[in-house]
Amino acid sequence: MDRVRQRVKRGRRPPSLTWKVLGVASLAGLCVVLAAWWAGPSLFSVPEPEQRRVVTATVTLPAECTTPDAEETVRFELDGTTRDGTLSGCGHDQDEQVRIAVPSDAGGSGLVEVSLAGTAPGIGDLRRPAGLFLLVLSCAAGGVYAYLVVRGPRLRTALA
C-alpha cells in the first residue's frame, strides 16, 4: 500500500489499460484457442467411436421395465438380410419401429448387440464446442487477472 501512495505522491499513476496490453493479451488468448482447435477432436472428447450404421428395426420381443438389465429382441434388415439383435432397453411395444445403431462388424449369424441410435456414442456430441467455450472463457479470465495484478491495489479516498 505504501508503494502505491509513493507513486501517487511522485505523480506516477498505476499502469493503465492500453491498446498494446489488450493486443498482446488478445493475441496470446487467440494463439491458445487456435492451438487447441488444431490439436483435434481428441482434446475435448473421446476418440472417434467405432463405425455404426443407423437402421430401422422392429421390436419382436419387448421387455418389461420392472426387470433389471432388461433386453428386448429386435429384427432389422442389414445388407439385404434380415437379422435379429438384442437391444439393451425396455418399454417398447410389440412391432414398434425404433432406430438402432448396428456395429459395422456385425457379420456372421446369431444375435447382434445393438443400441438405440440416439444414445450411440458420437451422436450429437457437444463436448468439443463446450470445451472450446470454456477455454476462451478461461483465457479472458486469465487476462483480467493479469491486468489486476499489474495494476496493483487501488487507493481508497475518504469521502468528505
Rank of each mutant, 00 (worst) to 15 (best):
A36L: 10
V46E: 14
L134M: 14
L30T: 13
S45F: 12
T66G: 08
R128V: 06
W37R: 01
V24P: 13
A146K: 11
P68A: 00
Q6H: 08
S42M: 11
R52L: 14
T66Q: 04
G85W: 05
R10T: 10
L137H: 14
T18Y: 01
Y147L: 13
L126C: 09
E96A: 03
A63I: 01
E96Y: 09
F44S: 06
I100L: 01
T56S: 12
R151H: 09
D79C: 04
C90L: 06
G23S: 06
A57W: 05
V112W: 08
V144D: 11
V55K: 11
A57P: 00
V46C: 08
A141W: 00
A117N: 02
L134H: 04
V149E: 07
C65Y: 02
S45A: 15
A35R: 00
L30R: 08
T157K: 07
T119E: 00
V8D: 08
A158E: 10
E48I: 14
A160P: 14
V150F: 11
G23I: 02
L27A: 08
F76V: 07
A106Q: 09
T119F: 00
R83Q: 07
S42Q: 14
R13S: 10
I123C: 11
T56M: 05
A35G: 15
S138V: 07
D95Q: 11
G107H: 11
R127Y: 14
Q51D: 09
V32K: 07
R156Q: 14
L22T: 12
R154A: 10
Y147K: 07
R156F: 10
A57G: 11
Q6R: 08
E113I: 09
A25Y: 13
G122M: 15
G11S: 02
C31D: 01
E77G: 05
